[in-house]
Write a protein that binds this DNA or RNA. Structure first.
Lengths: 175, 175
DNA sequence: CCCTCATGTTGAGGTAACCTCAGCTTTCGG
DNA sequence: CCGAAAGCTGAGGTTACCTCAACATGAGGG
């Protein structure tokens, strides 16, 4: 199962993506199926155009991240840990929205890959802090770069004016 | 497990979504974590802004689709079947990129929900054609409308000029 | 006509990524 | 001092796939 980590990592579960229906996934079904038999219709078309671009970007990113062989949940966890520097296991579970029991095993896996280590929490000796290792950081960084490069490949096809427009509009939508 | 079907259905696997790392998923981790500790950096930021919008849209859509209780794989299958009208089981498996064995059971589930039916294939009596039922079609249509409405809610915050810009740029990216 | 392959089903067993529950030891804090 | 927290272990569960094998029926080509 190809892996990913760090912020904005794509879903790497299924070939051209994950568990969902058309559109928002990364081209789950065969290419060219989107909007088959459906006419453009104002707002709806804007939504579908957006997801079509999302699929392209996700697919490219997924391919680009295949060399890193950590599981999706491990890479999500690593991404959270990279951003926070260190984190208690219970907090990690909260951030990942999984049960603490599950987080124990995700961290076990990351530890086996030498991507994180468990350290005692000086503030509470019952607790452990999960900390990315240097290897974990460099792995996450490499993955992040690969994804950024992939995005650049797509957006580089735009003129500077178009990029500025897109950036402006995306910021409005995001805020 | 909330469900979805039809084109552009979002991933509905996990709360704020599916199996992957940050960014391209629908806000897996807690809100506000994106770009934590990361400065804006040209192209990279465009990619991240794009995924941030994608997460918002996905989250909203996922919530909107919760009333339909079919599984993600069922809704993906239904989406493919709606677009194609009818399809052999082996073709459906190809489109969904799952094994025929697995497609058998996805269709079993759809059949139990009265969303599709199996018909003999007149061209090959070994084969069966999977066909959406009227209920399946109306369900898929309702799901599609709900998602379109959700997209409209997000994009309606833009001025007409911004929408035109976004639409133009997205079309360039998509082609 | 015969043989090879295709079709979809059933059954069995497997993996991954989660889940809940219970029990345990150690630690914390009121 | 005591109830709760922290994380671990173990057990058992679900979902969404997977492979493999076997089977009956049907198709098609030599």
């Amino acid at each position: 199962m190809p892996a990913d980590s760090g912020p904005d990592a794509p879903d790497t579960t299924r070939p051209d993506d994950d568990l969902r229906a058309d559109g928002e996934n990364a081209g789950q079904e065969k290419a060219g199926e989107e909007n088959a038999g459906r006419e453009n219709a104002g707002e709806e078309n804007l939504v579908e155009a957006f997801w079509a671009v999302a699929r392209r970007l996700r697919h490219g990113t997924r391919v680009a991240l295949e060399p890193w062989s950590i599981s999706p949940s491990q890479s999500r966890a690593l991404g959270v840990l990279i951003r926070h520097g260190e984190m208690r296991l219970s907090s990690l579970a909260d951030h990942l929205r999984i049960a603490p029991r599950s987080a124990t095993e995700v961290v076990d896996g990351l530890q086996e890959l030498d991507l994180v280590e468990r350290r005692p929490d000086p503030a509470d000796r019952r607790a452990v802090l999960v900390v990315p290792t240097p290897h974990g950081r460099s792995t996450a960084d490499a993955i992040h770069r690969a994804r950024a490069a992939e995005g650049e490949r797509l957006f580089a096809t735009l003129t500077p004016a178009d990029r500025a427009d897109l950036s402006r509009v995306l910021r409005k939508l995001h805020d």
